[in-house]
Nucleic acid binder design. Structure first.
Lengths: 227, 227
DNA sequence: GTCGGTTTGTTCTCCCGTTCACAAACTCCT
DNA sequence: AGGAGTTTGTGAACGGGAGAACAAACCGAC
């Protein structure tokens, strides 16, 4: 009934907590690179930009790592969170739609370094299929099913124009992909059990614009003729 | 104290509603282009991918547009939402960091068509300053303050590497920018009154990976040695 | 061994957001 | 004009997340 996946609470970790775990993972990685052995919840929370009480509650959902009176062991906690998220091994990813954004995504180093590996770039435009982007040849879109099966791809990224996105999503789902990251500015309808996360640049800007407008106008609101 | 802006509820429209208004605006624009004159809440909600009751409550926060027994007039409602968001006129935007992602953003047509106009591209790398991207010359970063003042820029986009992001944010704030869209994978500390929205690609992927992992494992969880 | 200081894990409360369900209000047909 | 049908706007119940505050647990000193 709902647009979100209602029974997606797989075990018992709240969705809001899941969304913050990558923040903690990143902060812990930075601490580890600075050769810090232990850290307090206060320190880690500051590094991640969240409240320390929230951090402790989040971590309590995955277990009782950490020692009272001492704090958390950086490397140990980092591994535990990585394991919980599932990025102790690499996930194969395909990117569909190799325009400006798709090329930027293919070149994005953050993927490779954080548990993801781009195994194929796909595009329906035959002109792009002669190009090589980020060391990978751009391949025809109809090779999707074979590539997904071959590499065991579970995550697909859509960076096509909006009109093509739904068809691409359908094809991804048919091929067996159950998680989609959608950059196309459109709503995707997918079957139950398939997760879609949306990144929408113009929506983010419009939200900023709303607040910006409110900052500018002190309190003039009702005195407008709108016919 | 908090990392979010606590007193940002400018008037009385809930934040969750504000985040959905751009969705409705987009759906209404699509309906208008299909020459549809009126639409029901059910129809608009389906197009936007949300619940119809949620849609009606959202719209009720901006006023009582719509006619019972009939629905909403597409063009009228579209204008009202655009006015509420503040995209009836264009917002000048600067993009800082013209790497792969910055170039993709500069070329993104959705900005221009949805109330935003990129007025300048900035980069600290002098090698990039000879390039022309999306019809705009890449200019030195130290011209920021002048550009912001000249065009009345209120919104800045950061697409630099993570280590440079905080310094860029500081410079934006000093120049007078009060809204920042941050693509760098790091937490930005900004003064009260400045809004930051974050788009983080690897976090989105990690959230997908978490759910994907839970789909794969039916219910094996505690039986792991972790030392 | 005991005591003080420190930090985690957890409980409790409050608030925001979602959803259901229904009254109010409008149109169209007779 | 009146009634049937339709759709909006909203009141109320419900669930989840945020934050404060505190008890439990650990370390180190004496």
């Amino acid at each position: 009934m709902s647009d979100r996946t209602p029974a997606e609470a797989a075990r018992d970790i709240p969705e809001a907590t899941v969304a913050r775990l990558p923040l903690y993972l990143r902060a812990l990685t930075a601490l580890a690179e600075a050769d810090q052995v232990t850290c307090s919840s206060e320190e880690l929370a500051t590094a991640a930009g969240v409240n320390s009480a929230k951090l402790r509650k989040d971590l309590s959902h995955l277990g009782s790592y950490g020692t009272r009176g001492v704090g958390y062991e950086v490397e140990y906690l980092r591994y535990q969170i990585a394991r919980e998220i599932g990025v102790t091994h690499d996930w194969p990813v395909v990117i569909v739609g190799i325009g400006n954004l798709g090329q930027a995504l293919a070149n994005f180093s953050g993927f490779r370094s954080r548990g993801f590996r781009v195994v194929a770039l796909l595009d329906a435009d035959s002109q792009r299929q002669s190009e090589v982007v980020a060391g990978l040849a751009v391949r025809p879109f109809d090779e999707l099913a074979g590539i997904v099966a071959e590499h065991g791809v579970a995550i697909g990224v859509i960076s096509t124009p909006a009109p093509a996105a739904q068809a691409v999503a359908d094809a991804l789902v048919v091929s067996g992909v159950r998680s989609i990251l959608n950059f196309a500015p459109t709503h995707l309808a997918v079957p139950e059990g398939v997760d879609v996360r949306k990144v929408d640049l113009s929506i983010e800007l419009q939200i900023l614009a709303y607040h910006e407008q409110r900052k500018a106008q002190p309190d003039a609101l009702d005195d407008e003729v709108t016919a």
